[in-house]
Amino acid sequence: MPMPAHIEWTDSDTNSPDFSARWHSESGAVAPRRVVVADDTTTAATAHRLACEGTALLWRGDFHGARQLLAAMARRVDRKTPPPGRTPADSFHQHRRARGHRARVLGMLLVLPDRGYGLVGERGLTLRRAPDVRAACRAAYGPPGGPTAVSLRELLGVVGAHEWRLKGVPVPALGGARIHPHYGVFSPVRGEYVDLVARAPLPVAAGRDASRPRTAFDVGTGTGVLAAVLARRGLDRVVATDINPRALACARANAQLLSLEGVVEVAAPGLFPAEGRAALVVCNPPWLPARPTSAVDQGVYDPGGAMLSAFLGGLAARLAPDGEGWLVLSDLAERLQLRSRERLLGEIAAAGLRVVDRLDTVPRHPRAADAADPLHAARAAEVTSLWRLVPDSF
């Protein structure tokens, strides 16, 4: 088993000996090779230059000063915006590269929570006016394992995610009940795809035989919001699957909070349940065929469209007689020229499936109206669809 990565640094102000600490990055960033101690005297220009060179800055001083330095570094990074691409795909890839560079640079400002995830200071790295982040870190990272260096940007994301977890996201399709997203699990803030699942007509197989439980699979359940909607629509049994253990824990917790644990069954990690067929199989895969760069990105980006292909390829074998598969998918990838409609239809046909209906809706999220977004044209024209699929022999 490989040893955990570490960072090393020297406190030159006090002539202290070399120190080291574990390194943790949810985005999979490698541990920086060079680390210097920074404090309230460090300027944004110096911090930005060092970060661009690959040198991390381990913060010692006022916590709010660290946040201000991070914001100042972000302003410097954002001064350089990529020019428009020749094609929508070029613009998308340039935008992703710019966001990746931004994340790498801002990820170089580090803090060192102590053995219990406190920010009281470890090894002389006192953080004045630091908030209590212990509960948020335990929820995201699990039990503490000793002082571990993390980027301040990631830590702020962990704290923000924990606040959303406590507060929850109201879902109109659930009568205003709240879904509580966990860290690293995509939040159902875009309600249009949820509404599609709430209003699509249930297949005949879901109500034909009253002597057998009406079963649905929610493939790639995430927070479990679609599983909850299906349960509220009267399905007797909804099996929720996901490859992400965090998502499974999140879906299980939300089912309990909604008093649906008797209907929603959370399966072991995997794309489909280990066995069985269902009258309805629903999947809302990541919409863009690109590589994710963080844990939450996995809800948006699907490298090479692998999950989409796997769902379509395995769907027919998982449907009960007269059953349907519901594919919930945005056409944003098509508008960005990352995937063609012909390719999608070709994959559906190659999987032995055919389309019996399609329900469409338009986005309601703020980014669709943000003219400053480099991908505005595609976002403004985006359509999200629920494709009703059946085996071609049906």
Rank of each mutant, 00 (worst) to 15 (best):
D218L: 04
V219T: 06
V219A: 08
G220A: 10
T221N: 10
T221R: 05
G222P: 03
G222D: 01
T223G: 13
G224Q: 04
L226R: 14
L226H: 13
A227N: 08
A231P: 05
A231E: 07
R232D: 14
R233S: 14
L235P: 01
D236R: 00
V238S: 04
V239Q: 01
P245K: 10
P245C: 12
P245H: 08
A247T: 02
L248V: 09
L248E: 01
L248P: 01
L248Y: 02
A249R: 13
A249S: 14
A249W: 04
C250P: 00
A253H: 15
N254T: 11
N254C: 09
Q256L: 09
Q256W: 06
L257W: 14
L257G: 13
L260T: 09
G262E: 15
G262Y: 08
G262N: 12
V263D: 11
E265M: 12
E265G: 07
V266L: 12
V266R: 00
P269I: 13
P269F: 05
G270D: 00
G270A: 11
F272A: 05
G276V: 09
R277K: 14
R277T: 15
A278C: 14
A278L: 14
A279E: 13
A279H: 06
L280A: 05
L280K: 02
N284W: 00
P285S: 12
P286L: 00
L288D: 00
L288S: 07
P289K: 00
A290M: 03
A290H: 01
A290Y: 02
A290Q: 01
A290E: 02
S294Q: 00
S294D: 02
A295N: 08
A295Q: 08
Q298W: 04
Q298H: 12
G299S: 10
V300L: 12
Y301M: 05
D302V: 09
G305E: 02
G305R: 02
M307A: 15
S309G: 14
L312Y: 04
G313M: 07
L315C: 06
L315Y: 01
A316V: 14
A317N: 13
R318M: 15
R318A: 10
G325R: 01
V328E: 02
S330V: 01
A333I: 04
R335G: 10
R335Y: 03
L336I: 09
R339I: 05
R339A: 14
S340N: 09
E342Y: 03
E342D: 15
R343W: 07
R343H: 12
L344N: 11
L345C: 11
L345F: 08
L345Q: 13
E347G: 14
I348D: 06
